[in-house]
Each structure stands twice: as C-alpha cells, then as structure tokens.
Design a protein around this nucleic acid. Structure first.
Lengths: 155, 155
DNA sequence: CTGAATACCGAGTGATTTAGTAGGTAATTA
DNA sequence: TAATTACCTACTAAATCACTCGGTATTCAG
C-alpha cells in the first residue's frame, strides 16, 4: 500500500467527480480548474482509473467522465491502488532465507499492519465521504465521525 | 500524511529494534543484516528518528540504538511522520479563491479523510504490534485483530 | 459536411525522492 | 592505543512526480 501525493490527486479528483457528476458528465477541464491539477496529469490518472473501471469516459462535446460505479461501491483503497501500484514490500517473499527468524517476524508484523491499513481504506467509500459532509452544518465540530460508522458496519 | 516505502523501512526497522532491543542496544549493522536495508540508508532514517526522540544512540563498542521511549508510546504515525515529511495538500490553504465553493468542499473532504487516516495510524503503537504477535500461535487465523482493541480503547 | 469539443494516447522533461556509496569525524570501550 | 560504534556530509543512478507538447479518435452542433 502506498499513499503518495499521486494518490491524493486521484482521490481528490474522484471526490470532485462524485460531487459534481450527479447530473451529467464532468470534463477533466472542469476538474483541472476546480482542483488545480494539470489537465494532462489528470488524463494520466484517469487512464489508470478507467483501466480499473472506476470511471467511464464519454467523448465529444457535452462529454466528460462518469463514475464507473456507484460512489458507494468505490473505496479509497480502490482509487489509490488504481494509480499507485501496490508495492510488495517483504523481501523474503515465499522462499525466505531469514536469519534467525527475527527477520521473518518483523516482516510478518509489517505485513499485518499493512493489511490493516488497507482494510481501513477499503472500508471508506466515496459515498461515505460525500453523504456525511453534505449533510453537515458548516460550523460543525466533529468531522472525524465520517468513517467510524462505515468501519464498524463493514468490519 | 504520506505512506511511502521510506516510511515502511522506518517502521520495519523500529519493529526490529522493539523486538531485539529488550536487553541492550541494537546496532544498525544488525538491523541492516536482519532487514536487508543498507547501513547508510538506515543512518539517514535514524538521524530523522533521533531528531524526534524516537530512538537514542549510544556510541562506542557495545553501543547501538535504544527506543527513545516505551514501545507503547511510539505510534506508527510518529515513525512515518519523522521520516516522511508531512505534506500539506490543500492548495487554497488559508486565503482561498475557490471557484464556486466546489473546490473547498472536496478539499475539506480530503482533509477529513487525511486526518482520519492519521488518527488511525496514531492509535497503533509498536507495543501493540509486538505484544499481540509474540503471544500469537504461528498458525493463527486472525492477525487483523491487532488494532481493533487499541483503536476502541484510544478513540 | 465542417468545425469544435472532448476523450484518448505517447513521448519527453526538470525537479524531487529513493536507496544507496563513499569517506570521513566523534565518542566510547577493551 | 586500537577497535567499534554512532554520527555527519557529499554524491549518485534510478525511479517517480507533475507536467508540457503534440498529436488521434470520437461525437455533437451548425
């Protein structure tokens, strides 16, 4: 799992799409304008997102992008994995010559943690984020309850 | 928040230190050997960790590194933030000229999500990882319960 | 049919990051 | 005194980031 600025751009763009794509497709030019991301970079990101069926493009005037599925079916992990290759970290993958077992232990620990982080992000959907925040008053105190529910529901 | 391979190296090294540093300091040479990370790269990482008081170095023969505080007081977020600069993502920080409010909304959403991810990692300590897994039988099924408890306790 | 709008595609690029090498100095112990 | 270790700075090849440029394909409006 890798969470870089590239993943952020993708998540932000997808959020923009989820919010503004309710009625009709959204052009990359609009997202570029709204989010301050260069058009060509967006094209690269959306090529990856399209490959995972997270978005669907429509050409020609009046065209743009739709979400590939319901916002409730798209998790943050889906988005990040689409644009940020999943890197396998453990070196002793499979046939390991681990010195004394200590190496394998830490690798197991990291692996468990890594899985846990992934599951965490996999349980947050675009729909969660959009719904909770649109229904929130602007001065409200506790934005972090966004995820708490979807977590306990899905876990 | 940024979760790159650099952060993984740091977390893995800290796990090694937490496990092997129970009686006496651990040298970077040992960690390098155990985890397959180059010595000089470890030095760079530990310089950052030392700057945040997450580790404490002892020079001379028989020297090495100790954890800077109890493993229960060191969160994964602490480690990652020490080596992987916290990057501020929102472009319209403070004085924003957001077009139509849509931009600010997505930025707020991302910001909330980002904070949530951070809190998640801030609630997992080195001690959690080590304790739960050392007490685990090797063939056990559910490694992901590691975090569930520490989360509900700390939240 | 023509032209514009839009997605789609690939090559290239400077800046940054990654992960590492090299070559030291400072402190401590045997 | 010599070995061991942390500590420090500079450098580097490779990868990644975020972006530019110059296209092609498809579709709609006139």
């Amino acid at each position: 799992m890798r969470l870089s600025t590239k993943g952020r751009y993708a998540v932000t763009a997808m959020l923009d799409l989820a919010i503004n794509g309710k009625n009709g497709p959204v052009t990359l030019a609009e997202i570029s304008e709204n989010q301050g991301i260069s058009l060509s970079y967006l094209e690269q990101l959306f090529a990856a997102l399209r490959g995972k069926d997270l978005v669907r493009g429509v050409r020609g005037p009046g065209g743009g992008y739709y979400l590939g599925k319901s916002a409730d079916e798209i998790s943050i992990a889906n988005i990040i994995c689409a644009v940020d290759e999943w890197v396998e970290f453990t070196r002793c993958g499979g046939r390991q010559n681990c010195s004394g077992g200590a190496r394998c232990l830490t690798h197991t620990l990291w692996d468990d943690l890594s899985t846990e982080i992934f599951n965490f992000l996999a349980n947050i959907t675009l729909g969660d984020l959009v719904k909770r925040n649109l229904g929130k008053k602007s001065g409200e105190e506790n934005p972090l309850s966004i995820v708490a529910n979807s977590r306990s529901e899905a876990a």
